[in-house]
Amino acid sequence: MSVTTTTPTLAKSAFDTPGKGRGLLDIFNHRYLLKLLIGKSTSLRYRNSVMGWLWSYARPTVQFLLYWFVMGQLLGMHKNVPYFPIYLFSGLVVVNFFNEAIGNVTRSIVDNKALVRKIYLPRELFPVAALISAFVNFLPQLAVLVVVCIFNGWVPTFENIGMFLGGMAIVMPFVLGLGLIFCAVNVRFRDAQNVVEIIRTIATWSSPVMYTWQMVYKHAHGWHSWLFDIYMSNPVTVAVELFHKAFWGPVVPKDDLKALAQVAFPPHFGLYIVFGVIVTILLLLIGQMVFRRFERTFAQDL
């Protein structure tokens, strides 16, 4: 008597093709790995450091004091902008977040080359983890800003919180889209890191942090008004103005008409928000395409 056995057959669709994924959408299926990468990044940041997390407060504090002394005292900006320290710091935290995030995301694949070469996992996990780690390091600066604003009469409202969340909702995907491009290119051409350093330098001065948008508008008004439109459509600039409205605006005296005029949004700011969102979405899509194109050779290039 013979016994015949049948081997079950599985459809090809039941298996995942190595190296083939859905890009950023795969992040949601690998939340545990993302959590591990974020924990690794934050724990290594200040390992063997005496001050530890205090450096998250010390560095931006020194930077703020330096800018406040030079721009506020030496150049007299405190005479033109009421509560200039809060104006400066509320914009500076956005620029600091952008600068740290773009640097972290650009280096994320190269810094994790041991993992990239040995095992396959969605490569987008690394830049996303780097972005979230930068956000974690941003929180101490935000906490200092909130405390200072509260001591100056700031009261949180739904409008203020909405402005803050709107600013973060624009700048975070913008950094991710830009970072995906430089992150991918940096694996093959390390010159990308030098380009990013130039972008970080420009970012410090390309948004109304140490000056006001009115100064730019005054010089760009007329035949050069299109330059102001481009300037204000920058997602980082949009986020900075939203932060100003959320934290600096409420502490400005309501009986000071000149000061209230400075608090007002630029003309057509609603359109600038729309343009900023469009730029962010396009950059995120382009960044994903570039990243997917270059990731095929990550292991070899590393």
Rank of each mutant, 00 (worst) to 15 (best):
W68A: 10
S56Y: 09
K245E: 06
V136C: 09
T42K: 15
P82C: 05
G167M: 04
P267S: 10
F247I: 01
P250Q: 03
P208L: 05
I286Y: 10
V251P: 00
F89R: 01
K40R: 15
P173I: 04
S233Y: 04
H219N: 03
I281D: 08
F89S: 02
Y46Q: 04
G177F: 02
A239V: 02
L125I: 07
F265P: 10
I273M: 12
M168H: 04
M215N: 15
A134D: 00
L178I: 09
V196A: 02
Q193E: 09
F15H: 14
H224K: 14
Q288D: 11
N96G: 09
L242A: 07
G72P: 05
F98R: 02
Q193A: 11
A299K: 09
T4G: 10
Q300G: 09
L284Y: 10
I181L: 11
L75R: 15
V146M: 11
A259E: 00
N29V: 06
L145G: 00
T204A: 14
P253Q: 11
I273R: 01
N104P: 13
I86D: 00
G23Y: 04
N112P: 08
Y46S: 07
Y57P: 07
L25Y: 07
Q141F: 03
T106Y: 04
S2W: 05
P122Y: 10
A14Q: 07
Q193I: 05
D16M: 12
F189G: 03
F28R: 15
V110A: 13
V94Y: 02
R296H: 12
L66W: 04
R292K: 13
T237H: 14
A114K: 15
V236D: 06
A134S: 12
E159I: 09
Y46D: 01
I38V: 08
H30L: 04
F174M: 12
V70N: 14
V144M: 15
F174I: 05
F151S: 15
G249Q: 00
V155I: 14
A220G: 08
P60D: 12
T4N: 05
L139V: 12
E159N: 12
R292Q: 07
K40T: 07
Y83T: 06
L44E: 14
F158Q: 14
L115W: 02
V94R: 01
N137V: 03
S133T: 08
Y67A: 07
Y120D: 11
N234G: 09
G21F: 02
W53M: 11
V263W: 00
K218C: 03
Q193L: 05
F243Y: 13
H30A: 08
I286L: 12
F294G: 08
V3A: 12
G52M: 05
Y231H: 09
L121M: 15
I161C: 05
R190W: 03
C149L: 09
